Amino acid sequence: MAEDHTNKGALCGCKGIRSCLICEKFVGKQRIEDDTHLKLRSFVYEPPVGLAVRDEQGVRESFSFPGVFLWKDFVSPEEEKHLVDSMDRDCWKESQSGRRKQDFGPKVNFKKQRVRLGGFTGLPAVSRDLVTRMRQEPLLEDFQPVEQCNLDYSPTRGSAIDPHLDDSWLWGERLVTINLLSDTVVTMSRDDGEMLVSVGLPRRSLLVLYGEARHQWKHAIHRKDIEKRRVCSTYRELSPEFLPGGMQENLGSQLLDIALTFQGVPV
């Protein structure tokens, strides 16, 4: 699906301090460079041992980095093509910082902590087999996704996503992402720390963030780490407030009933 950025009328979804190559070029928006990483010690996550490791001038430094699970080759090349083709048949909406998105989930106002069904019709049909496969992993055996967000990153748009923690009022313990079309790096950071941890995310792999990595470390995708088109699907589950015994379990039950029909279209 070709992109044309030669027209000055081309729109992006950037607001506030957010920017992409489109608005930087055609609107003259200035990108605020974050040089925090230049002052921090950089580590690389090593999945086999669960450690964040740093080698500098022959000195090796490491620490335990819990809450990251990586499943390489979660989908096959044929499945990858089928998934991306299916996404490209739907409409992509412009989003912040050069991303495009497709949402399959309820309408949420996180500031006011309100949820409504809106036009939510469920997760897409192509995700049914993927969710079944996820549950073969003990960490995800009871995973019930209630929302799916597809994101499209492109180097020609300067796509990125700033360091952030996903909401924990509505969204539950595990964040599950399937990475498609190209390798990338998820950069983990803490406000009160002096370190960055780079988590390599291979093409066609599945990543789960939970525990400390979910709640204590912000995650980001930097512009420099998008070298080719990258598409990902992130699945989120409900928090205890919306599960049996929670204050909003009835609403949670409605949301799950809709989500798991796998008949959804982007909202």
Rank of each mutant, 00 (worst) to 15 (best):
S86W: 02
M87Y: 04
V84Q: 13
L83R: 03
R174Q: 09
Q144W: 06
S159T: 09
S159P: 10
D142A: 09
Q136D: 08
F110M: 09
D142R: 12
R99A: 09
D162M: 12
R174M: 08
R89C: 14
S127F: 13
D167K: 06
K107I: 14
L175W: 05
R89G: 14
S86Y: 04
V108R: 10
W92R: 03
R133C: 01
K112S: 09
E147D: 00
P124C: 02
I161P: 04
L117T: 15
P155Q: 02
S97A: 14
Q96A: 13
L83V: 05
H164G: 01
L140W: 06
S154L: 14
Q144M: 10
P163S: 10
V84I: 12
P155D: 09
G172H: 00
S86P: 06
T121R: 13
G122C: 06
G98P: 05
D142E: 12
F110P: 06
T132N: 11
W171M: 00
K101Q: 04
I161F: 08
Q144E: 14
L123A: 04
R133T: 04
H82W: 01
Q136P: 06
D162Y: 08
T132Y: 09
L140Y: 12
P145F: 02
E137G: 07
N179K: 03
L170A: 03
Q113P: 10
D85A: 12
L180H: 01
N109K: 06
R89W: 10
M87C: 12
L170I: 08
S95Q: 10
D88V: 00
E173G: 04
L175F: 03
L170N: 03
R133M: 04
M87W: 13
V176T: 11
V126Y: 13
R116H: 12
P138M: 02
G172Y: 00
S95Y: 01
D90P: 07
V146T: 02
K101E: 11
T156D: 15
L123H: 00
M134Q: 11
Q96D: 15
D90F: 14
P163F: 07
V131G: 03
K112G: 11
E141M: 07
K101P: 00
P155K: 02
G119T: 10
K101H: 09
R99F: 03
P163H: 02
R100C: 07
V126T: 14
D129Y: 05
R133P: 01
F120N: 06
I161N: 01
I161C: 11
S86M: 02
P106H: 06
Q113C: 10
D142Q: 13
W92F: 10
W171P: 00
D88R: 03
D166E: 03
R128E: 01
R174C: 04
K112N: 11
Q96P: 03
C149R: 14
K112Y: 05
W92T: 00
Q113G: 07
K107E: 13
R89Q: 15
G122P: 07
V108Q: 04
L117G: 11
L130Y: 00
Q102N: 08
W92M: 00
R114V: 15
A125I: 03
G119H: 11
Q102G: 12
C149I: 15
L83H: 02
G118D: 12
F104M: 08
K101A: 04
R116G: 11
K93P: 01
R99D: 02
S86G: 12
R157V: 09
N179W: 00
G158A: 06
N150I: 13
T156H: 13
L175A: 05
D167I: 12
D166N: 10
G105Y: 05
V126P: 14
K107M: 14
V108F: 06
E137H: 15
L83F: 07
